[in-house]
Design a protein around this nucleic acid. Structure first.
Length: 307
DNA sequence: CGCCAGGGGAGCT
DNA sequence: AGCTCCCCTGGC
C-alpha cells in the first residue's frame, strides 16, 4: 500500500468528469480503477490518498497515469480573475486531473461515446471487456478483505450476473476484436457504433493505424491520423488526443461545451490566454456543466432492467 | 406506439 | 463551413 499527500487531486471529480469510463465508486471515498490490464483500489480522505498497490507499481504506472507530477495549481491560477464563470467552474472542480490513459482504450471509448450517455458508455465498455478481455484475479495482497455484504447504493451499475469482487476483466487488445463481424459488438450494446470499433481494431492490426507512431506525433499530426479512422470526427479525435495522448491543447467541442460557449463566451473563448492547456480548462468547464448545477439531484438511479 | 435525446459523423454542397 | 441524413438504445 502506498499513501501519498497529493494536492488538487479528487477522485470523485475525476470519476464523474467523463474522461475515464472504467473508474467506479465502490463506497464513499473508495474507488476502483481499471486501466489496460491493471486493477487498483484507491481510498481518499482529503489530501491523503491510499493506493492499494506496491510502491513499485505506483511509481512504475499509477503515478504517471494520474498525472501526479503535473502542477494543476498553475493551470488554475492562469484563469482570468475577471472571468467569474470560469472561476466558479475551477472552484467546483479543483481536484480535476487529465489522466494519461491508453491510446487504444481511448479510441474505443470515444468511438462509443458519440450520441451516447455516460451511463451507457460505461456499460458498453464493461460488456466488451467481459466478453473479449481476459479474466484476472483482483490483487488481494494490499487490500483489507472487509467483507460487508452491502451492495453499493446510489450509482450502482453492477452487471446482471452479480459482480464478484474477486475477478475483473482486462481491456481487449485490437487483436481480440479485429476478426469479428462488424455488427458483433451490438451484443455488447454498442448499437451502430459496433462497426466503428471493429474497423478501428482492423486498422491497428493491419498497420494502417500505428498507435506507437501516433503517440510520438505532434497534436496536429496525431489528430490528422485519428481523423482517418472511420467514425472518428473532430470532437472524438480531440477527446482521444486529450485523454489518450495527453495533448493538453486539444479542446473537444461537444454539445455541453458549445452550450457553455454560447452562454458565457459570446465573443469567443480566450484561447490565446490558455494556449497549450486549453484542454485542462475545457475539462473544468465540462465537469461544471455536467455536475455543477445538479449536484443536489443525487437520486439518479440506474434501473436494472430485468433483461 | 411515437417521439426525442444522448459529450457526433459521413457525405454532400 | 454549413447542411441533411443517419445510426442504435433507452426514457417518456
Amino acid at each position: 500500500m502506498v499513501e501519498k499527500e497529493i494536492k488538487h487531486f479528487n477522485l470523485e471529480q475525476i470519476c464523474d468528469s467523463g474522461q475515464c469510463f472504467r473508474m467506479k465508486k465502490m463506497q464513499d471515498n473508495v474507488y476502483v480503477v481499471l486501466a489496460k490490464d491493471r486493477y487498483i483500489k484507491i481510498e481518499q480522505e482529503g489530501d491523503r490518498t491510499r493506493f492499494y498497490c506496491s510502491e513499485e507499481e505506483f511509481l512504475g504506472f499509477w503515478k504517471e497515469y494520474f498525472d501526479v507530477d503535473n502542477d494543476y495549481a498553475a493551470y488554475m491560477a492562469a484563469a482570468n480573475p475577471n472571468d467569474r464563470y470560469l472561476n466558479r467552474a475551477i472552484a467546483f472542480g479543483s481536484g480535476m486531473r487529465i489522466l494519461r490513459q491508453d491510446l487504444w482504450e481511448m479510441i474505443v471509448s470515444f468511438l462509443i461515446s458519440q450520441q451516447n450517455n455516460i451511463v451507457r458508455i460505461r456499460r458498453c465498455i464493461e460488456n466488451i471487456c467481459e466478453r473479449y478481455g481476459e479474466q484476472r484475479a483482483v490483487p488481494g495482497d494490499f487490500g483489507h478483505p472487509t467483507a460487508n455484504g452491502e451492495a453499493a447504493d446510489g450509482g450502482s451499475f453492477t452487471s446482471e450476473s452479480g459482480d464478484d469482487d474477486t475477478y475483473y476483466y482486462t481491456f481487449p487488445e485490437p487483436e481480440a476484436l479485429c476478426g469479428l463481424p462488424e455488427d458483433a459488438l451490438m451484443e455488447c450494446n454498442l448499437g451502430y457504433r459496433s462497426k466503428y470499433v471493429v474497423r478501428a481494431a482492423r486498422s491497428v492490426v493491419n498497420g494502417e493505424f500505428d498507435p506507437e507512431a501516433v503517440s510520438a506525433m505532434s497534436y496536429r499530426k496525431a489528430k490528422e491520423e485519428l481523423l482517418k479512422l472511420f467514425g472518428v470526427g473532430e470532437k472524438v479525435a480531440d477527446c482521444i488526443c486529450l485523454f489518450g495522448l495527453h495533448h493538453l491543447q486539444a479542446f473537444p467541442m461537444d454539445t455541453h461545451i458549445k452550450q457553455a460557449m454560447a452562454q458565457h463566451y459570446k465573443r469567443g473563448f480566450p484561447n490565446r490566454r490558455y494556449r497549450g492547456f486549453q484542454g485542462v480548462i475545457q475539462q473544468y468547464i465540462f465537469y461544471y456543466e455536467l455536475c455543477g448545477k445538479k449536484k443536489s439531484r443525487v437520486s439518479e438511479r440506474t434501473q436494472k432492467a430485468g433483461r
